[in-house]
Nucleic acid binder design. Structure first.
Lengths: 238, 238
DNA sequence: CGGGATCTTGACTGTCCTCAAGTGCTGTGG
DNA sequence: CCACAGCACTTGAGGACAGTCAAGATCCCG
């Protein structure tokens, strides 16, 4: 029971997920076993999370704040690849080759567990094995969502999609913090920073969002935002 | 030992993979256990493979031929999503929502196993569990490769990439069969069929490939093909 | 040989990138 | 308190690349 009033109760208040998917359906006893096995990391803004390259499977749950993952591109240099918000799990199976770097955005707290620890735990709690598959499956689904976004959406739809997605994943607050620059939004959506800026302002002009500050977004009409994020209705018959 | 001279010995002759990744490192005894548990399906050209929607984890190994996966898009209708060539494994964790349809290209033979069967097997052969993670990890890596292709490559690079990729996965034969139309190549790469056609012809004009028939590609200079498939050397400083 | 599907090629258009010149925030030092 | 430097953001003009539409060539199969 001790586990229940621990820190991630904060995360459980978030509307976007009552409980991290990895721990779904666990009873109090199982939860406290988990609690004993996982260890808690606290990171300041910008601090880098060290993940052992050799370790194939490393579990991480973000309790507070957010993590950014930068991957190195073939030509050298890195680009922003993905964000993990509070309540979400780090991808347990990262890209094997290209080294990803995880760093905190704002003060961030997370639970981590290494491969062996998780293997031990899942022997005691078979449900964990199932939940892990769910997490991986979600990750694959996300990857496909990005493929759809990158391949078949216009600039306006990409920006609306990302804003809507971030908004939902942060628990649809009145006003959300945009934790990345226009340039980084561009890296994720494969647009230039100028195009991102133009599209964000366009959403503001039609009254879907307002921008108290460039990095703070107030979603005025989330329904319209979602509509603008979907694909162009007609694709050629191919 | 019976397993060793069975059908997939054919697949093991292919240069691209000596043994399906899922069965890597298994000894003869383990292999025959696998052999008894998996069942073999034979599909004629165009025939559809039925996969139980409710079944979350379904293992499939393509021995001969190829499978195409079509997913339904939000607006209705389907588009070609991915190909699985001989020697490769079907993605064990498919997209949950959008129903994918698997159909054969040419005469195709594959081994399948349901969830329980695989769970039983992996209790007897712990190595299978590890191999399964490798397969899923490869799948995620592929998804990221597609994201790179869709987001950051020009039309010329996309077409060269896909040709090079198919060529490698088919075992780099002198002459390869392009099992899909220009329109379907376009669906995968998010280009129009006209653009695909133009880029394929451009590769022919500069002597990287030749086209005995539109659906047969002879790779004359695979090094040049690879060079043309990589990203533009310079991306803006962001 | 004919008909339909697939592929090729051309001309034009639109979206997004590029380059360039701004504006607005934020923190720092006089 | 203000000046200013640095950074992120905005806005505009022009151009390149791929999409669209249209016409024709080629392949494939009965």
């Amino acid at each position: 029971m001790n586990a229940m009033n621990h820190d991630w109760a904060e995360a459980s208040l978030r509307p976007n997920n009552t409980c991290p998917a990895l721990l779904r359906g666990l009873n109090a006893d199982e939860m406290s076993r988990v609690w004993n096995r996982f260890e808690e990391d606290c990171l300041a803004d910008g601090e880098v999370l060290l993940r052992d390259r050799a370790e194939p499977l490393h579990i991480g749950l973000v309790l507070k704040g957010a993590l950014r993952e930068d991957v190195s591109v073939p030509q050298g240099g890195t680009r922003l690849f993905a964000l993990t918000f509070a309540g979400e799990a780090l991808s347990p199976l990262g890209p094997r080759q290209k080294g990803g770097r995880l760093s905190a955005i704002g003060d961030t707290r997370l639970l981590t567990c290494d491969h062996e620890g998780f293997a031990d735990l899942s022997r005691e709690i078979p449900r964990l094995q199932l939940n892990l598959f769910g997490v991986v499956q979600d990750q694959i689904e996300d990857a496909h969502r990005w493929q759809l976004l990158l391949g078949r959406k216009t600039a306006a739809e990409r920006v609306a999609s990302i804003l809507a997605w971030f908004h939902m994943r942060q628990g649809t607050p009145e006003e959300m913090d945009l934790p990345v620059t226009r340039a980084e939004l561009g890296e994720m959506s494969s647009l230039t920073l100028e195009t991102v800026s133009r599209q964000v302002r366009a959403l503001e002009k039609v009254g879907v969002i307002s921008l108290p500050k460039p990095s703070q977004v107030r979603v005025l009409d989330s329904k319209a935002l979602l509509e603008r994020s979907c694909n162009t209705p007609i694709l050629r018959a191919a």
